[in-house]
Simulated assay, not measured.
Amino acid sequence: MTVLVNVIVMVGMLVVVPAGLRLTGLPELDRIGRLWPLFAVPGAVALWLPRSPAATAFALCYALGTVLLALHAPRRLIRSRDLSPGQVALLTALVTPAVAALALVAERAGHELFGFDLEILALTVPHFHFAGFAAALVAGLVCRVSESRAGRFAALSVPLGTLLVLVGYFIGDWAELAGAAVLTAGMWTVGLLTWRLGRERGRDRTTRLLLLTSAAVLVATMLLALSWAIGEATGLPHPTLTWMAATHGLGNALGFALCSLLAWQRIRDRHPSESRTA
């Protein structure tokens, strides 16, 4: 499982985050995106080293980049004083990689942060790159384009669900199940709106395929996430963590996040006003 999780995290670090930052249309984030390899490459190296001071040092390099990114959230909030649903989704996307980096540093150091074992910390890293950063960013994009109640729901429920899942780590399985339910509802709404975008007239075939694939994958991957959370809370049979990494994790990384960001990049190139989150 470790190799697969590391590959998924590398996709998040090296591809998803910089691609997402470009899609925001914000010059200051685009500049961070251009510098991102300076932080992400050491982070990727840290994944493959044995737990050691060297691995921790490389992970700290990545953490520095995520902190610089997270600091833009309060700055933007103070400057714009905007708490619209789309803006909440964007602010969430800016902060969540730092949560992933904190877990990475602790795991690479062999430190059971807040009492969580190293396996859970390792899985927290991809979770907050994809269910955190990518999901919140895409929710903000569909909210801006749809300008509907469903879009606003998606842009608020994805950040809320992500936060509730994080809180559930500390409270217990039932709280985590509540977070998974809210996050699933938000992600399925993102999938529905993405499907509608893919069915619109005027979309080229490649963009249409990417959007429809992203929407379809979300149905399956979030159903898996919900079934796992239900199983953890109730004791009912549910997929193992290894199976979840191979299905839910890989599907969200490649089928949802990568396909979504590629589609939105194509939309931005053809219709720039459609793909801005702010």
Rank of each mutant, 00 (worst) to 15 (best):
E200C: 05
V167I: 15
V167G: 08
A215K: 01
L218M: 13
G235L: 10
G168H: 10
G198P: 05
F256A: 02
C259E: 03
A216W: 00
I171A: 15
S260V: 02
P159E: 04
G255L: 00
T206S: 15
A178S: 14
V190P: 03
V190N: 05
T206Q: 14
T213Q: 00
L241F: 13
I171V: 15
I267C: 02
G168K: 08
L193D: 07
A245E: 07
H248S: 11
I171H: 12
F256G: 00
T221G: 03
I267T: 13
A257H: 03
L183T: 03
A215R: 00
L224Y: 08
M222E: 13
M222P: 00
S214E: 04
S227L: 15
A246R: 07
L211Q: 05
S214Q: 10
Q265N: 14
D173E: 15
E200T: 12
G186K: 07
R205I: 10
C259W: 02
L236E: 14
L164I: 08
I267P: 03
M222A: 04
L224R: 01
L223H: 03
V158M: 05
L211A: 06
E176M: 13
T207K: 09
G198D: 08
L160V: 15
T184G: 05
L193A: 06
L223E: 06
L166R: 11
S227N: 07
G255H: 00
P239S: 09
L261G: 11
E232D: 11
G251E: 01
L193M: 10
N252A: 02
L241T: 15
L261N: 08
R270Q: 15
A263H: 03
